[in-house]
Design a protein around this nucleic acid. Sequence first.
DNA 1: TGGGCTTTGTGAATGTGTGCACGAGTGCCT
DNA 2: AGGCACTCGTGCACACATTCACAAAGCCCA
Lengths: 230, 230
Amino acid sequence: MAPDRNRRRIPDATVSRLPVYLRILSEQGDEGVDSISSERLAELAGVNAAKVRKDLSYLGSYGTRGVGYEVAYLVYQVRRELGLTHDWPVVIVGAGNLGQALAGYNGFGERGFPVAGIVDVDEHKVGTVMGGVRVRHIDELPQIVQTKRVNIGVIATPGGAAQDAADRLVKAGVTSILNFAPVVLSVPHGIETRKVDLAVELQILSYHEQRRSGGVAGAAVGSNPRTATA
Amino acid sequence: MAPDRNRRRIPDATVSRLPVYLRILSEQGDEGVDSISSERLAELAGVNAAKVRKDLSYLGSYGTRGVGYEVAYLVYQVRRELGLTHDWPVVIVGAGNLGQALAGYNGFGERGFPVAGIVDVDEHKVGTVMGGVRVRHIDELPQIVQTKRVNIGVIATPGGAAQDAADRLVKAGVTSILNFAPVVLSVPHGIETRKVDLAVELQILSYHEQRRSGGVAGAAVGSNPRTATA
DNA sequence: TGGGCTTTGTGAATGTGTGCACGAGTGCCT
DNA sequence: AGGCACTCGTGCACACATTCACAAAGCCCA
Ligand SMILES: NC(=O)c1ccc[n+]([C@@H]2O[C@H](COP(=O)([O-])OP(=O)(O)OC[C@H]3O[C@@H](n4cnc5c(N)ncnc54)[C@H](O)[C@@H]3O)[C@@H](O)[C@H]2O)c1
Ligand SMILES: NC(=O)c1ccc[n+]([C@@H]2O[C@H](COP(=O)([O-])OP(=O)(O)OC[C@H]3O[C@@H](n4cnc5c(N)ncnc54)[C@H](O)[C@@H]3O)[C@@H](O)[C@H]2O)c1
């Protein structure tokens, strides 16, 4: 019960950690663990225990002092908070290299995000089957979104086509977009977007490598810092 | 010449935006733009202009008041700061669905991260060619890392094998890891890791979708009345 | 029943990031 | 030469996030 609990805003940083807790809790549940302390959960999640407690406290007071959290109940609460009480079908735009890998990825559907469809502009790709889903023409996007009640779109087109893909998704009625193309999307207010940018991740790692090697510019490939800092 | 050749620490938030600025600057440069204001760069990057200026100020004072930043020079400085003055070969562990997509992805090498090798445990995959790179057995990992001077490893194995992959990478001498498996890796101190977790991204979107249906007034631009709670 | 042990939930302190506002340079025009 | 328009660089205040530290609350057992 306690329906009043609903208008709290959960900090972004917390929202981005909840899925991690959820995965760990589910795994622990599968392994027969039925109670877990913030200390243990923190260890498994690679974070500070106080952070875990504060994060979970935004959902409500679901722990028991002196004991910990009941795994099954907490899983339920986190899932509810994340809106995972039902499936969210997704539509993938771009049936290339990446789109193919995504379509063939079981972890998608398993976690409550079944692939409702995959579309492409390339006539050669339309009709082929990827990961059990038939590729359809991008003009069918609105129809897919409507009939399958899709709210989430995934962009896996080349960078140059990503904005067009986003525009089409929004027009079709999608309100959240996950973008794999290395482009900053411009979308109407109210549309949620997130990006996964491989180059950005690698370049961040590069920054730290460069820094580690005490290296400034000009550090040729000759000097290889195999330093195991322990 | 800048005499401040020091160990300035650039804030994480800034480091994660520099690659975005870099891409935009490179594109602008290719289009013949040779000077750009923080205002314009901010617009293209989808952030606040003051933030751009503050971010860039960590690199030094490379702008010209009243004018803006010289694109070519700024590209050079950002690249230098990110350690992109030379290539960083990467090794991919796991030649499955995703590993294949990654190996066949040109954007990798184009951006200075050539695939030095891809390894797998599956004997059936060893020897096959993906994206121009031959799959080798994981036991050859140390040899690849040593001879190709690889500092960055990419994990594209199933979750259950990810920690093992990480251990092997670290043992082989890799000091930075990009992890696509939905697992929290445990690595020795000094090893940098970043993760790309599809489920996390989708669940964050789910959170916002769920919240949207709860009816926070005045959020959307009145386009999509469809509150799917299928 | 009460005391000891454990672990939560949260105020308060500290650390990080953001955005405004404006002084300080710079280029251009008259 | 002087004034004006423009844009950088940054001090400052505020917002957000992390971590500490401890009282409150529950369990267990003698
Ligand atoms: N392949 C990877 O491992 C990888 C990794 C990270 C990021 N990315 C990014 O993901 C995106 C896709 O990469 P990829 O390797 O799959 O490329 P790809 O060229 O193999 O596939 C792109 C697909 O998009 C289709 N397409 C083009 N324009 C379209 C449009 N307007 N609407 C719908 N579909 C359209 C093409 O027909 C093609 O099938 C790129 O932006 C790339 O930078 C790829
Ligand atoms: N496919 C996707 O689109 C996608 C998207 C996001 C995340 N992921 C994640 O990426 C990872 C890989 O996904 P996938 O679809 O490519 O899986 P996959 O099963 O197709 O490929 C995994 C590969 O790893 C190899 N492998 C297993 N154990 C290994 C070990 N110890 N050392 C080296 N190689 C090993 C297997 O032989 C196989 O070739 C998974 O963790 C998955 O959750 C995949």
